[in-house]
Nucleic acid binder design. Structure first.
Lengths: 199, 199
DNA sequence: CCTACCGATCGGTAGG
DNA sequence: CCTACCGATCGGTAGG
């Protein structure tokens, strides 16, 4: 792996754990094993490093997005879409943490990214849900746009703090790992609040 | 209002917007209109200020909690409990932002607070839900603990970034404010994923 | 509650 | 990719 990629990996890890302001360029350089000015040769400023770290995460999301939209458009396989969404963030929870932090730290910046980046595919999914609503598969009072965004936000926020939430569960020693319980329940909540009961 | 309270108000506002590391003691002192050493007379360190800011939020939560548990225990009025929960954070979204930031910045610290502070009343609510499950009012496959925690997390995270999420909605000019749409949909999701359909 | 001041660390640059 | 160094700001203290 080249130095630039190593820098991005360590930056995302540290930004996720300590935040952007809570992480110094020195710390990232130490983690990579180079000197601070060497890092600033690859990224002209700490701010540039922030943008690149976020782009890195969003571009990986773009890798899974086409496949996800294909599934959603073709046969509305809800479980598959939710699985792709949860898998993406569970694969590296730091992604969820960085995204949550950016939404808190830079709301205007993140709103811009959301408009150009998230809204298009939210619109596609909402369209599908509207069709399903007309057919009667989906419950009539679902606010399809607000629903889709809320579910995405629930997954991102849930994964970002998933290990914290474990502390709120009763500590059954032999029980299923807390992570799995939460993810399963999140998916259940999203599904059950969407579809018309089959009865 | 005394100086100490003013400091806490400004600290919570700035911590919510910029984070703890992103806010300097100088900034808070400026916002209050005093010098930095004067602030450090009231709070011995920035770290002490953080703890007090969080205690302030949690103690306000303790004001509404007994009433909330009474409602939940007496007649399981789900909508009233959800209303108390959403109202508390919507009343000042900075509360939600500070809590989310603390969960990200200080996971071990926050886990401790969750165990002593959140878990007891989550247990009470989960107990109520188990009884309702036995009666058949609540759906059989609900993981009551994971459900209660997930709903709380959904509300906290949703309110924390509620203005960001507006950017993902189509911009119907005359439409209902984005905030209200989101809150309404969050409550619908929570309710519908819990109860057995009346059919 | 203030003025004056501390060492440490910050992001970033010069120059090679 | 390094050494050497910059001004600015950080949290905090002394002393009144």
């Amino acid at each position: 792996m080249d130095v630039r990629s190593q820098i991005l990996v360590e930056a995302i890890r540290l930004f996720a754990a300590q935040g952007f302001q809570g992480t110094s360029v020195q710390e990232i350089a130490d983690a990579v094993g180079i000197r601070k000015p060497s890092l600033l040769y690859h990224f002209p400023s700490k701010e540039a490093l922030r943008q690149c770290a976020l782009d890195e995460i969003l571009s990986r999301w773009n890798d899974v997005l086409p496949n996800l939209l294909l599934i959603a458009t073709r046969d509305q396989r809800f479980d598959k879409v939710m699985e792709a969404l949860t898998d993406f963030f569970l694969e590296d929870p730091d992604r969820a943490r960085v995204v949550m932090r950016e939404m808190l730290d830079r709301p205007e910046d993140m709103q811009r990214r959301i408009i150009t980046f998230v809204r298009p595919w939210i619109d596609v999914i909402a369209d599908q849900l509207e069709k399903a609503k007309a057919k009667g598969t989906v419950q009539g009072d679902v606010d399809t746009h607000a629903y889709a965004i809320s579910v995405v936000n629930m997954v991102v926020a849930g994964v970002a703090v998933i290990d914290n939430l474990g502390a709120a569960l009763p500590g059954d020693a032999g029980a299923k790992p807390a992570r799995e319980r939460y993810v399963r329940e999140l998916v259940r909540i999203a599904r059950r609040s969407l579809y018309q009961p089959v009865s």
